[in-house]
């Protein structure tokens, strides 16, 4: 059973309503899929940087944007930049589109899962350089 959107809109002062039909029109899910997928991409980026820093002394040292914080400064700064860029790009591409939820949410779930794995010490320490 659904609550009538027009009734909700009538009670909400934040709902912009030119006419009843447009206020009740369902929003495309593209922007939400973009936000979720971008978070997943940012997460896996952090995981990848973590593994790379463990595997390569050069990358480890190169990620030391701050001597006080160490390589974590580079890993997290770059991951956040990847996240922002991904969100911007995906939002621009999907903002007016209504997409099938499942494929994108599945990809996001896989990326989140991999990110958790890649940031788990027993895993990334497997790649420790000699």
């Amino acid at each position: 059973m659904a609550i009538d959107q027009a009734t909700i809109d009538a009670k909400s002062s934040t709902a912009a309503s030119v006419d009843g039909a447009s206020a009740s029109a369902k929003k495309p899910n593209g922007p939400v899929i973009a936000a979720t997928l971008a978070a997943a991409i940012g997460s896996i980026a952090l995981g990848i940087f973590t593994v790379l820093a463990e595997a390569s002394t050069g990358i480890h040292d190169g990620l030391e944007f701050s001597k006080r914080v160490g390589p974590l400064s580079g890993k997290t700064t770059l991951a956040v930049l990847v996240y922002i860029a991904a969100w911007g790009g995906l939002h621009a591409a999907f903002k007016k589109r209504d997409l099938a939820w499942k494929p994108y949410l599945r990809v996001s779930a896989v990326l989140f899962g991999l990110a958790l794995l890649f940031t788990f010490p027993p895993f990334f320490q497997l790649f420790a350089s000699e």
Binding site: A39, G42, S43, T50, L72, T119
Partner: peptide, 13 residues
């Protein structure tokens, strides 16, 4: 130190 940074990404979504 690594996994913690996933929290704000997911929470923002």
């Amino acid at each position: 130190e690594h996994a913690a940074w996933l929290v704000p990404l997911i929470a923002t979504a």
